Computed example of a mutant assay.
Amino acid sequence: MAVVTSATEVRGKRWWREVGWRYPVAAVAIVYAAFPIVYILSASLSDRGTLTGSNRLFAEVSTSQYEQLLATMFPTWVANTLFIGGVTAVGVVLMGGAAAYAFSRFRFAGRRQWLTGLLLVQMFPQMLAFVAIFLLLLSLRDVVPVLGLNSQVGLIAVYLGGALGTNTFLMYGFFNSVPKELDEAAKIDGAGHARVFFTIILRLAAPILAVVGLLSFVATFSDYIIAGIVLQSQDRLTVAVGLYQFISGQFDARWGIFAAGAVISAIPVLLLFLFLQRYIVGGLTSGSVKG
């Protein structure tokens, strides 16, 4: 009996040392990550409209904050953000994919230098470009109004240029893992580079395309600084810029409406993440070793 008890204790200690300790660590991480979400949800359902005295979660449940939010220009801001984020995600996937395909499949003079240049450009902090972006769009407004200041198309162009380098590198590593024999077989059958790219490479690169599109959409959806610099009219603002107006006042901050807007704004990103989650791990890891 003593031998059996000792063996059980040894197995129990071994299980705790190798596996068991992960459960309390995971529980603490889940609580730490979920508490802000639960707190914001509770504040959005409170009738007070303020965070003061909201320490008791779900002490009162009311939809008044959501009703007041929908009476503002919030639906317009959401539509603007979905349009800008969707167009930017599609544009980044197509532009980054085309650039990555060229670097992966073609051999031309200065190929390595251009790759190194893209990497070096991405190392500079983005805030260094804020003044240049403002002055550039201010000048373009007089020449090409659709690309100037207070233009959603101009904001999309800024996003596309800023995301090209990093996403090109992500897709470049993935494209290198696609066998070149597929390209050669398609060319023997008479396919050109465009047909190979759109019908073969893009289909095989679906995981990395999903990851790049998701990251671009999330970054665009949550961006405040660049969108706040470019967009100025109320009917053209994005969600991040528009919601900040509810809490920018020192004495009239409307935290309840802000919390309701934050909850609704998280839904599109959450749905997109759930829809693309089966591609995320494969897209981030494939091509990371071979290149």
Rank of each mutant, 00 (worst) to 15 (best):
R48I: 06
L160G: 05
V131Q: 10
V144D: 05
A132G: 04
V178N: 07
T81I: 02
L136Y: 07
G117C: 09
V158K: 02
L170W: 05
E60S: 13
G117W: 11
A59S: 13
I156W: 05
M171Y: 04
P125R: 07
L160A: 04
N55D: 06
L82Y: 04
S139G: 07
A43Q: 11
L149G: 07
S104E: 01
V178H: 10
V146N: 05
N167S: 10
V38L: 15
L57G: 08
V178M: 09
A79Y: 06
A89G: 06
D47Q: 10
F74S: 13
L70T: 03
F134P: 02
L115A: 11
I156N: 09
R112Q: 14
M73R: 09
L164D: 01
A43R: 13
L70F: 14
N167C: 05
Q152A: 09
N150H: 03
M123N: 09
L160C: 06
R56T: 12
F108I: 04
V87F: 13
P179I: 08
P125E: 13
V90P: 01
G162H: 01
M127N: 14
A99S: 11
N55M: 09
T63K: 01
F134H: 05
P145I: 11
N176G: 10
G110T: 05
E60V: 04
L160I: 10
L170A: 11
A100D: 13
S62I: 06
E67H: 12
Q113G: 06
A71C: 06
Q126M: 09
F124A: 15
M95W: 00
T116A: 14
Q65K: 08
T81A: 02
E60T: 13
R107G: 12
G110Y: 02
F106R: 10
G148L: 07
L137T: 14
S177G: 07
F103T: 02
A129Y: 15
F169D: 02
V92I: 15
D142V: 12
A102H: 00
V146R: 11
F103S: 00
L149A: 15
G53A: 08
S42H: 04
T168R: 04
L164N: 03
F106C: 03
P36E: 13
M73W: 06
L115V: 10
L164W: 01
L140S: 08
V143P: 03
V38H: 02
G86D: 04
A89I: 03
P125H: 14
L119C: 05
N167I: 00
I133D: 01
Q122S: 14
S42C: 06
L136N: 07
V158S: 07
T72S: 15
S104L: 03
Q126Y: 07
L136D: 01
Q126K: 07
L164R: 02
T81P: 02
V93Y: 02
A132Y: 02
Q152K: 12
R56I: 12
V146Y: 10
A102E: 00
T76L: 14
R111L: 08
R141V: 08
Y101Q: 05
V93D: 00
L118P: 12
Q113C: 04
L149M: 13
G148N: 11
S151N: 11
L147A: 12
L94Y: 04
V144C: 03
